[in-house]
Amino acid sequence: MKSNKSMTEKKFRLVEHTADIGLVAYGNCLNEAFENAAFGMFSIITDLRKVKPTVSRAISIREDSYEDLLFEWLNTLLYHLDVEGIIFRKFNVSTINDRCLSAECSGEIFDPNRHTIKTAVKSATYHLLEVNRSKCSVKVILDV
């Protein structure tokens, strides 16, 4: 059951990695951990305080495991950034189980006059990737 906890309380931390960046995200449920992982990734990319939630996309993913879902979830968001220029900042994962994930994500089209790219993220990787369902936490190394 998803809590009503405000999305303003972001729960993620960055982990040192020589060439890349590690990200650990938490939540009161797995949905929130996935939401916070996405928020954490976009916080690495840009200053999200300057991003308004003006466009939204529904994202639906089918995979064989929670690990594959996490990998695909983050990489799908990066795909939208590359193709449509959307920087997402608000995530609502409505469904997650070991086969699928559904979410509504909103953000803003990158505007070079107002936004800067702090660190470009190339991809989420499988290296040290973890989904801990009992602790509602996820870990991922991002290739930057």
């Binding site: 594959d68 990998f71 695909e72 990489n75 590359d82 193709v83 190339k122 991809s123 499988y126």
Partner: peptide, 18 residues
């Protein structure tokens, strides 16, 4: 190879893992 290369890598890492 920019996002194209990243996507090719994603696609095939996943298919090979399976």
């Amino acid at each position: 190879s920019r996002g194209l290369g990243h996507q090719v890598a994603n696609d095939y890492i996943k298919s090979m893992a399976k």
